[in-house]
């Protein structure tokens, strides 16, 4: 399956899972909202140019927004992590491996569990921080803001871990084709 087809299927799958599975989980605590959908942006191939990355993120976010009736909210957060992603990868990726190797960000391609975990958790945290900040502008409760950012980040990291275990992604080598 080509990268394009794979990512189109993933696009739909992530949105449907977020809307019809995760958003329907009965609330456990007021801090906890299970978010997983943004993993789609973290899994996009390395070769996506920064501008395409942001455009894809915007369309992806706005698609989720039309289901939750919050136009712009998730789109803004997605565009932010899409903007930061290339810079973070440049910092994390070992200099000597930058050239060829793998197509998608994964444990192997980023050179171990620690760099990959850093990559995931930094972007997850930024995503939730920005998302909760935008929500906080309308509600305005400092402790709620802080608690929600930390709790949702924790829950998301757990969900991402489960997704990484469940979804088998082949570590493809980059080819010239």
């Amino acid at each position: 399956m080509s990268d394009l087809v794979k990512n189109i299927i993933r696009f739909a799958a992530f949105i449907l899972i977020q809307v019809y599975v995760l958003n329907r989980i009965p609330p456990v605590h007021r801090f906890i909202v299970p978010y997983l959908y943004f993993l789609y942006i973290l899994w996009l191939p390395f070769k996506t140019t920064p501008i395409n990355l942001m455009l894809i993120a915007f369309v992806f976010g706005i698609s989720l927004d039309s289901f939750t009736n919050t136009p712009g909210l998730h789109a803004a957060a997605c565009v932010l992590i899409a903007f930061i992603r290339p810079y973070l990868i440049t910092i994390i990726l070992p200099q000597e491996r930058k050239e060829l190797y793998y197509t998608n960000p994964s444990v192997k391609s980023l050179g171990g569990v620690a760099p990959y975990a850093l990559y995931i958790s930094v972007l997850t945290f930024i995503h939730h921080l920005y998302l909760t900040f935008l929500e906080w502008l309308s509600t305005g409760n400092w402790w709620y803001f802080l608690g929600k950012v930390l709790a949702t980040t924790g829950v998301s990291l757990m969900l991402i871990l489960i997704a990484e275990i469940l979804v088998y992604r082949k570590d493809q080598m980059r080819t010239n084709a």
Binding site: T70, P71, G72, L73, A75, V79, L80
Partner: peptide
């Protein structure tokens, strides 16, 4: 492009919250 997309997203977000309507919806 980052700034432009952010502005578009935030603009629909806050406009929608205020007036409760958006052509896109």
């Amino acid at each position: 492009i980052f700034v432009a997309l952010q502005v578009i997203a935030l603009w629909i977000l806050f406009k929608y919250n205020k007036f409760h309507e958006a052509a896109y919806l």
